[in-house]
Design a binder for these strands. Sequence first.
DNA 1: GATACGTGGTC
DNA 2: TGACCACGTAT
Length: 293
Amino acid sequence: MVDEIFRWWPSVRQTRDELPWRSTRDPWLTLLAEMMLTQTQVARVAERFVVIAERFPTAEACAKAPLSEVLALWVGLGYNRRAVALHRTAVLICERHGGEVPCDLQSLLQLPGVGSYTARAVLAFSFDVQSAVVDTNVGRVLARAASGTQLRPREAQTLADELVPVGQVRDWNLAIMDFGHLVCRSRSPMCESCVLASSVCRWQQMRRSSKIEIPDPAVGSGGVSTRQPTFEGSDRQGRGRLVRAACLGPLPEDELCHIAGWPNEHERALRIADMLVVEGIMRRDANGCYQLA
DNA sequence: GATACGTGGTC
DNA sequence: TGACCACGTAT
């Protein structure tokens, strides 16, 4: 599988290398990019990454900035609690590691907002540590091509670790992610032109030798995300509106429900605002107004 | 292990 | 056009 994907990769590599975080191996910028990319599509992160990376070229620069500035830079990306985690992580990197991103898995996992994927991404992309990243794309490739069956997260990680070629950690992880994104896509995978289809891919083998349709092994598999409830009218939608509005100025308590888009649900808006306070995204000022923390 | 978490894009 | 999809971490 490794050889086939590496033979395919050059056809897309140049384009993919234009993504701004691919032109650096700086550990802090890699960590910043991966935290921004958490559950957020590449296309929407690209522009904003350039802005934030320029403002916070080091962990120290981020740690010294007020959280409200980090939040204001973040707004529009979604999952605003990641901005709080980023700021805390920057502070912790300064306190615990002298301002340098740690290069071991355990230390990285201690940082807020850094989980299995992000920690390994930093190791693989900026430290050349033997390590495999399993994001939704990689998880899908592994389930379909390497296994042919659903994988638990642990199994997916183990499989991924076994594949990493010595001395090509960064390139391999980028290549398999690109492959999952562009060829082994979630919907309508390009099996017709896939370099794995004729030989390696277990799912294709099963489909060829079976009369009935074989279900996609990537569905519900480890590392592949599950769907979520409707956004319209959800708490998340109201939260997003409150945080966005708070970037422009303090929010009086009695206006919260209108800003959240629920004119008749004052209680609900207040509950959401208080959740934002608990999460460290907002705070109540002396006037009882809500503003960015 | 189920659920919450934001926004923009596709069909 | 409204349901569906991409996209990891924390609890």
